[in-house]
Design a protein around this nucleic acid. Sequence first.
DNA 1: ACAAGTAGGTTGGAAAATCCAACTTACTCC
DNA 2: GGAGTAAGTTGGATTTTCCAACCTACTTGT
Lengths: 160, 160
Amino acid sequence: MNRSIDKELDGPRACFIAAGLDVLGERWALLALREMSLGVHRFDQIARNTGASRDILTGRLRTLESRGVIERVQYSEHPPRYEYHLTTSGAEVAPILISLAAWSSAWMRDETPRASYQHSCGADLQPVVSCAVCGEEFAQGSLMLGPLVSAAGAEPASED
Amino acid sequence: MNRSIDKELDGPRACFIAAGLDVLGERWALLALREMSLGVHRFDQIARNTGASRDILTGRLRTLESRGVIERVQYSEHPPRYEYHLTTSGAEVAPILISLAAWSSAWMRDETPRASYQHSCGADLQPVVSCAVCGEEFAQGSLMLGPLVSAAGAEPASED
DNA sequence: ACAAGTAGGTTGGAAAATCCAACTTACTCC
DNA sequence: GGAGTAAGTTGGATTTTCCAACCTACTTGT
């Protein structure tokens, strides 16, 4: 089991973390998604609230749209004006934002006053991540490599 | 409540998500942490498995070290050789990697075969994020802005 | 003993991404 | 009729990143 760690990779590790970062890891992408999660949908506001340059933001929004994370919704025809909304896929980025906010809140406190986050129950953000299958909380070192998978489905084990 | 969303910000939103991305959002940082989570601790291997250029990786590892996320452990004196290990703070990045891997696995499937991840119970990665206080699962739109906080503690409400 | 390999970098120069301020278009509001 | 708003686009400067080669000090093989 977990032979994959010891085996020499012939190139960079192709995994779902790397694939996710391909889309969400570009600068400003997660902050733009944060804004939409908070109900901010218009270009100028997203640009202001994130601090992204307008040209770069345009590019990011196009990428996120092409990857199905957000969609452009036209709200004016003349002139053409659009709002940006999360798709289902985009809404499901929330756990990433939640984990990031919680980690940052726990470890990145400095003098700067910052907006914190809460669960809708009113409590400070204290997310617990557990396994949907066995119900156990993810503990130290409980993230492990699994088999290779692609759109076609799981691959059979390799012969090493 | 949640006046903060409607209020015009005078600058970019200073929040813990943005602060976290300051450290973890630079290119290659999360992939380097992924490697350490998987038990890979040496420079050459981290460079190979992430695909990062060696010079950039050097910079990232220094930043992560200076922010207390990883530590350099010397394992040879002549010549000086180091391993990189997660600190407690670094180990707690795991929920972010888990959420990212799960999102990516759900939404980023294409033809490319990729390494998947599992919980240590052997099940495919299906994390559930719930609130430690009320126990409820984080549902759509349940991430909300809270008060401003800094190292000194919570700020009193502003006068708007 | 001597060459090759390993480990953890550093260096210089090219390429790509980002930043910034200004400009554009087509409205709406006063 | 002028100012303001919204969603970009543009050109040029700046910053990051990439890449391959180099360096030092061992260790291993012959």
